[in-house]
Amino acid sequence: MPVALPEVKETWSGKIVEVTLGAGPDKGGTRGRTVTVGGETALPFLHFEGQIPNRPVIAAEVSDRAPEDWSSLLTEAWGGVLEDPASWAARAEELGAEVIALSLDSAHPERGDTGAKEARATVRKVLEATSLPLIIYGPGQIDKDNEVLVAAAEEAKGERVALGNCEEKNYRTIVAAALANDQAVIAKTPIDVNLAKQLNVLIGDMGLARDRIIMDPTTGALGYGIEYTYSVMERVRLAALTGDAALQEPLLVTAGYEAWRAKEARTSEGVPAQWGDWNQRGLLWEANTSVTLLGTGADILVLRHPETISLVKYAVDELMKGV
């Protein structure tokens, strides 16, 4: 007698919120392309048990000042465009990026200490150079973040950009800027389900709509804590699908930043021969970090290397083939 298979499909009651970045002329912006992420009613790429209406997207990291501490694999791959964020963004768009993650790094007190005026000019220039939606990051220093992100939010009014990072220590200022200028935020918390939930609640309490929040759970790279991010994201996504509304925001991971901090990606000097070809190792450090986090629910992956952009897009193409 043939064996009958048990039903293993899970039934989920929750749904990830759909968040759209970028606004075209119909919505008061100038973006040629917009992206919508989220909307899942299933665990990542398990097409047999629910809907996955939007594919995860790739954001390319672009800085307003040529990075001094990047691996030469990265600076050589990008070449001269690193000197100019507008050319850099345009090149990233050509290479297949779907979002530009613009970092206003020159505002950092130790890296240029530029202010609101320069931030506005950079944002304007990049908006003109690319048709893609923007994520805009401050330099990661609280006073300067507040200064330049508020200016950037105003300058990009109508364009529906995402402002980051919006953290526990500065969320009031960033959320207020998002509210005043119709923008979204990147809510970042340090690898912890409860902190992620709490920040979403605090942001919601200020009146920012759920479809304008993206969660960054903090990425650990391959070899440097990826297993923590893996499990925290998996728990966040399970809670969301089970119905916890405060965790139903799409997830963003900074796979490029974290992977390229790892010694394995950064350097070829004084490393064991078993580590193999440096270029291949660097690409795979970023790509395999990305693959793992796609599997735990990443909706936006911020990447660094031009070739990783196409490798990870390939993985998304393959994973979106419904079965």
Partner: peptide
């Protein structure tokens, strides 16, 4: 490919 193998062994150790 040693580079690919090393990244996979690292991932396996992590997970």
């Amino acid at each position: 490919e040693p580079a690919a193998l090393y990244s996979l062994l690292t991932l396996r150790q992590n997970i």
